[in-house]
Design a protein around this nucleic acid. Sequence first.
DNA 1: GTCTATATGTGGATAGAC
DNA 2: GTCTATCCACATATAGAC
Lengths: 210, 210
Amino acid sequence: MVAGGRAASIPRRDRRAERREATRAEILVAAWGLVHERGLAELSLRDLGERVGMRAQSLYSYFESKHAIYDAMFEEGNRELLRRMEAARDSGADAEDRFRRAASTMIDFALEDPERSQLLFLRSLPGFQPSPAAYEPAVQVLQIARDGLAELGVTRPELLDLWTASVSGLTQQQLADEPGGHRWRKLLDDLIDMYLAFARPPAPRKRGTR
Amino acid sequence: MVAGGRAASIPRRDRRAERREATRAEILVAAWGLVHERGLAELSLRDLGERVGMRAQSLYSYFESKHAIYDAMFEEGNRELLRRMEAARDSGADAEDRFRRAASTMIDFALEDPERSQLLFLRSLPGFQPSPAAYEPAVQVLQIARDGLAELGVTRPELLDLWTASVSGLTQQQLADEPGGHRWRKLLDDLIDMYLAFARPPAPRKRGTR
DNA sequence: GTCTATATGTGGATAGAC
DNA sequence: GTCTATCCACATATAGAC
C-alpha cells in the first residue's frame, strides 16, 4: 500500500511532511510578528506572504483560510498557557501557595502579550470562532483552576465563576487602560486576600487552639 | 455679515442646520440598528447608506469618516450611561443602598446591549480611539463611582480600581460566555458583599455598644 | 509546491459634475 | 447635498505553467 512497497509498520521519516510542518511553523512565527507590530485584526495575507517569502496565494497551500491561521495561533497560545499552569500547579508549598502562584502565572501570561490575550480571551475578531481542538487546552486550564480551589475547600461553582470573573477583570483593565504598566497587576494580592476571606470556609474551631 | 442683513445677535432658527442635525441623528439610529443586527465591526457604509436612503459616499457630508460615526455612537452611549448613573446616585435610602443601586444600574446597562458595551468598554475596533469629547461623560461616570465609595469611607484609589475591575470582570464574563443569561449577573450581590467586607473600614468600636 | 494571471466581492475614501 | 465615477486595499478563489 505504501509507495515503494514498504510495510506501513516500519516508521520512516517523511521529509516532505517534515518540511511542510516546518513551513507552517515559520508562517505562524511570522504571523505573531506582524500581529505584534500592527495589531491582531490588521494581519493581512499579503503582508504575511511577503514576510515568509512567498505570494499570498501560496499560503493557501499551508492553511485553508485566514481563520485557520488564527485558529492555529489560538491553539498555540492556549497550549503555552496550559503548560505554564501545569507547572504552577506542580509547585508551591501548600494549597494556598499554589493558588497564588497559579493566579500570578495566569495574569502574567495575559499581560506579557496583549495581542495574544486579545485573541485568546476576547472575542474581538469578526467571524472568528476557535475550533474545538484549539479550544481544548483552555478547558484543561479551567479544570486546573477548579481543582486548585477545591484544594482550598472552595467547591461551589458560583465561587469559581466569581474568581475567574475577578481575575479576568483585573487583567483586562490592565491591558485596556495601561498596557505594560502595573497599576492593576499590583492589586492581585489584594484580590486574592479579598476573595479567600469571602470564599474559603472558616477553619473549624478546635478546642485548645489559641 | 449675516446673509439678509440680519444682526448676528438676533437668534433665528437655522432650518438648514436643523435638517442636517436631524439627518445625522437618523444615520445614527440606522447605524445602531445595523450594529445590533450584524455586529459592531460589521458596520459598512454601503449598508448604512442604503438603510437611510442615500449612497455610501453621501454619508461623508454628515460624518467625515466611519470612525466619526463610531465616535458619535460612543458619545451617545456614554451620555445615556451617565444619565442613568446620575439617577441612581440621586436615589436610595443610604450610602450602601445607593452603592448597590449604582452597581446594578451599571451592569444592567452593559448587559442590555452587548454591541454598545463592546464599543464603550472594549477596545476592539481596529484603529478606533474615541475623541476626548466623546469620552468625557465616562470620566464623570467614574467620578460618581469615586464619590459613592467615598460616602462609604472607601477612599484609597487602589480600592476604586479593585472595584471597577471586579464589576467589569463580572460584566464581561456574562457578555462573552452567555449573553442574555444571568449566570454571572446573579453574582453581583456576592461581589458587593465580598468587596465591602474587604474595603470598608471597620466600624469604630464604641464602649457600651453590644 | 509555487508561481503568474485573473476574477469576484467587499470595503473606505476622494474628485468633480449637477 | 447628492450623485457618478474612480481608486486603492483586501480576502478569497481558480486555472494553468514550471
